[in-house]
Design a protein around this nucleic acid. Structure first.
Lengths: 254, 254
DNA sequence: CGAGACTTTGACCGTAGTCAATTTATGTGG
DNA sequence: CCACATAAATTGACTACGGTCAAAGTCTCG
């Protein structure tokens, strides 16, 4: 009756993330917490994100994204949201270009209950909020660098490492492995690559033993993680990274 | 002795932007305004941008950018700041990856004097601020779409149209023409293209009569501006834009 | 004029996109 | 549980967009 394993695969860990800490809350708090949970099927458009007057929520389970579809059908995914992430969604969204979409079945809780999920979080109120916001902003810049400067292999590894790190923080990584519940089309639209080329890039990384990716489970061995230092690739051996331009950039890089 | 034409080319218009409105201020206000002006040479690193505890300033003349240099020398420029833009700069910046750099000689005024530059602006204080911030955020997403989805011609046109629009708002466009005080290397690092390919792309656009770009002056004729609807290209004739995928995206694009 | 930065061009190559077909899951109803 | 329908992943063949290397041409400014 509680969280019935909505995000399959490592879902129990998700529930554990929340439930493991609920013990420190009162019964009333727990009831209010579960009453505030909202569920949405995969593909639900939850409106435009990151606006004033928005609803604040925390993802309890499932993945979501913020994206934009161009009139000719091309799609860019700006950011991916994971369990534990705070999102700001506005219902009744205007027809803004950006929208916030569930990539899997999604469980959201009102962020008033953040204290129950993570007691150490909202201690400083506004401060904690800007800290989170800044962290999300930082990811946007990293992603921009990915799209503008990294090649296909670098983009894939960089994104997987980010997801690894973020999922590890909410205990969704086991044995260097996490579940990636995204189609290759979604990944391609995130990374600015075609589906076919993404598929081939993954094949190369797999063949080189850099990653394992099968049935939507990803394994990043320690040596791979060490070789990727976001937002770039340092280890030329493992990933096709580049040597620093000798002498740095020419002259004054303005 | 006043603004001595720091940004050459259309600089007088910049001065006019500020001075034309100074008449409505008291002599004391005007003196305080000019005392707060700070000047920096091109290339100055003004620290990391967009952080708390930052210095708020308005660009009176000159261009700046926020950027990041990867250890191997690759550079990504995230956003470009124009006269009239509000920027948040933090001196004594930590060694953060992102930095805020002057792309030309730069004149900044303390944003307390915003009222003098644009009396209609700060009427609602915090509200106006978040409005500006949101507008800047929106540009980041547009730029991300540029990098991830648009081809070289589309990227160039999309960026030039954005600059046209923003410069027009501060009266820096005359006869469909504005000054673009950036090297092609800077543009290339902004658009995620190589210098050589950017140069060839510009040549193609010039040959097609889509744009004029010479001696760092850009002309976007009305027909070109109409054909570009950010963040994408609609007119296949003029720009190599694409037809919408018939039937839209296959199935459920998740 | 000379030095250095910037722009432009040629030749060539490699990465990534497109089109099309096949294979492999994932479901769904009988 | 199987036949069928669909979505997703994979592969081949080919194209083209964009990067690299190198050199020549321009522009600025002291």
């Amino acid at each position: 009756m509680l969280n019935s394993g909505v995000s399959s695969g490592l879902a129990p860990a998700t529930a554990t993330m929340a439930l493991g800490r609920l013990r420190s809350a009162s019964a009333d708090q727990v009831r209010a917490f579960w009453r505030s949970v909202e569920r949405y099927p995969s593909g639900t458009n939850l409106g435009s994100g990151l606006h004033a007057g928005a609803t604040h929520a925390i993802i309890l389970s499932g993945w979501a994204c913020e994206m934009c579809i161009l009139p000719d059908g091309r799609r860019q995914i700006f950011s991916i949201f994971l369990p534990g992430d705070r999102v700001e969604v506005r219902r009744n969204a205007d027809l803004s270009a950006r929208s916030f979409v569930a990539l899997t079945r999604l469980e959201l809780v009102n962020s008033e209950h953040r204290a129950i999920i993570d007691p150490s979080g909202p201690a400083r109120g506004a401060k904690a909020k800007t800290g989170l916001r800044r962290c999300a902003d930082e990811r946007l810049f990293v992603h921009m660098t990915r799209l503008g400067q990294l090649n296909a292999q670098e983009r894939v590894l960089s994104l997987l490492l980010e997801l690894y790190t973020r999922l590890d923080a909410v205990n969704l990584v086991k044995d260097d492995t996490f579940r990636l519940p995204l189609s290759q089309e979604t990944l391609a639209d995130t990374l600015g690559l075609s589906i076919v080329h993404l598929n081939r890039t993954i094949r190369q990384l797999r063949a080189a033993g850099t990653i394992a990716l099968k049935a939507r489970m990803v394994t990043l061995p320690m040596r791979t993680r060490l070789s990727i230092l976001a937002p770039h690739i340092r280890d030329a051996t493992a990933s096709g990274g580049r040597e620093p331009r000798e002498g740095g950039r020419r002259g004054r890089p303005i």
